[in-house]
């Protein structure tokens, strides 16, 4: 959709300027991809594919400065295979990391652009196991900013892109305080009382998340784990 939009807006501008001269424009010919990396650990920063961190990019050379957006996959990678080769200002925004700076980037052909970010929270020593009729998660929380941790959660969904916005079952605890990095947190989901969504014999993805209390912040996660019930 976004690429189509670029194309159309370009057309529109020409259309207005040149009064009905329809041009034969080239298709988007470049690809932009990369990963959100933890500035300290250099590991990918886990994300949400819906309502997660977004990447705003503005194509240079147009007065309108229209912001286009890309979403990020759960594993922290993103890819846009339909982008016009050009100069762009690219900013990761509304994310699960300390606000990052806009970058001016020349996109041409296959262009790799990683974002080194400071995730608000690192979920450490994460372990998710089925134990009897429960799924139990244990983990530690390392926050990198002074804000309170708002809540922590264990989320389940049939798809690997599980997260707070995409879950059929959840178990959350409000924290609303600064966390002790040495404390082990525990969350559990009872399987029988969620029989509508967690069916014995099926496989589900479970993921531990935590969200910082900062404006427009998003959840930080440990990697999703697949468990057969």
């Amino acid at each position: 959709m976004k690429h189509l939009k670029t194309y159309l807006s370009a057309l529109l501008i020409i259309f207005i300027a040149a009064a009905c001269k329809i041009d034969n424009y080239p298709a988007p010919d470049a690809r932009l991809y990369g990963t959100f990396l933890d500035v300290e650990t250099n590991e990918p920063v886990e994300q949400d594919i819906i309502r997660g961190s977004t990447i705003e990019f503005i194509e240079h050379g147009y007065a309108s400065q229209t912001k286009q957006v890309m979403i990020v996959k759960n594993d922290g990678t993103y890819r846009n295979n339909l982008i016009f080769a050009n100069q762009y200002t690219i900013t990761p925004v509304r994310g699960n990391f300390v606000p990052a700076e806009p970058q001016d980037v020349n996109v041409a052909g296959e262009t790799k652009l990683d974002f080194k970010v400071q995730p608000y929270i690192r979920v450490k020593d994460a372990k998710i196991e089925k134990s009897g009729s429960k799924v139990i998660a244990t983990f530690k929380i390392q926050q990198t900013v002074i804000n309170n941790v708002r809540k922590i959660g264990l989320y389940a969904h049939p798809e690997p892109s599980v997260g707070e916005p995409m879950r059929t079952v959840l178990s959350e605890t409000d924290i609303n305080a600064a966390t002790d990095p040495n404390k082990v947190y525990k969350l559990e989901i009872d399987i029988p009382s969620n029989s509508n969504n967690l069916k014995a014999g099926s496989q589900y993805f479970f993921r531990i998340g935590a969200i910082i209390d900062a404006p427009e912040s998003k959840f930080n996660y440990a990697k999703a784990v697949r468990i057969a019930l």
Binding site: V98, I146, I212, P215
Partner: peptide, 18 residues
């Protein structure tokens, strides 16, 4: 304070380091 300075301080510091 925390909602304003919380994300802002580390981002400022990161910018300056860079």
């Amino acid at each position: 304070y925390t909602s304003v300075a919380g994300p802002n301080l580390p981002a400022d510091i990161a910018w300056c380091k860079a």
